[in-house]
């Protein structure tokens, strides 16, 4: 099958400290992927390297037929790979509407700006209500909605969400999970990092466990996997059968 994203033996980190160690995985066109694993093991770092915020030390990243390793974030966004980073504070002193429109700054997104705005509002009706409100005054959940909305405005060929429900109260978290499901139903391929593996199982086709900066295990979401097994992966040696 045609690959949308191919990450091959990627290494990256901060300064001289290596975090991501030879991670390889790929994503077929139309597929959704989940990443999970203990805190501080390099999931966010991996995503920053893929989106051009951090340099690739070695290995390569190909996206939609072009090599994007060490390309600028702008080039990567233009290619259609959009990251919604963990805990995005966005632009505090801008209105929701203005922030969403900035999401369509890339040339590749301009033509679709109106229809993407429509799509974002239909998935997050609350954002339409709060169009003129400043981002700093939003609740954590609403801010996360704007962040995903900004990602959608970039007309993504692949949307990467880094812990979109982190720190949210249960009710708003459920609302957001439903909305992310709706994003996927709109036909936007997703890569999602989440602690809540059960949510991931219902959303994605395949899961990858990231541990100590490596992709240690990969399995299909279709093969039902038990709660105990997941707990084992978190707290065990990460290499359970």
């Amino acid at each position: 099958m045609q690959k949308l994203l191919e990450v091959d033996k990627l290494a990256s980190g901060y300064g001289r400290i290596q975090i991501v160690r030879d991670i390889s995985f790929s994503l077929a066109t139309g597929e959704c992927l989940g990443l999970f694993g203990p805190n501080g093991h390099g999931k966010s770092t991996l995503l920053k390297a893929i989106s051009g915020l951090l340099p690739c030390w070695s290995g390569s990243i190909r996206f939609a037929g072009q090599t994007i390793s060490n390309a600028s974030p702008r080039k990567i966004v233009e290619a259609g790979l959009i990251l919604v980073p963990q805990g995005n504070q966005l632009f505090p002193e801008m209105t929701v509407g203005e922030t969403l429109r900035l999401g369509a700054f890339a040339n590749a997104a301009r033509a679709e700006e109106a229809s993407n705005l429509e799509r974002a509002y239909s998935i997050f009706p609350r954002l339409k209500e709060r169009d003129r409100q400043q981002v700093w005054s939003l609740s954590g959940g609403e801010r996360q909605m704007v962040a995903i909305g900004v990602g959608l405005m970039g007309n993504p060929k692949l949307l990467i969400l880094d812990e979109p429900t982190l720190g949210l109260a249960p009710r708003i978290k459920d609302e957001l999970c439903d909305a992310i499901g709706a994003v996927s139903k709109h036909g936007v391929p997703l890569v999602v990092v989440e602690q809540d593996v059960e949510f991931l199982l219902g959303l994605v086709d395949r899961l990858i466990l990231i541990d100590h900066g490596s992709a240690v295990r990969e399995f299909s979401a279709a093969n039902s996997i038990g709660h105990d097994e997941i707990m084992d992966m978190y707290f065990g040696d990460g290499k359970v059968a």
């Binding site: 974030p73 919604v84 980073p85 995005n88 504070q89 900004v150």
Partner: peptide, 9 residues
């Protein structure tokens, strides 16, 4: 927010 700006292209 420079990082968010970069990620918006």
């Amino acid at each position: 927010n420079q990082e968010a700006a970069l990620l918006a292209g």
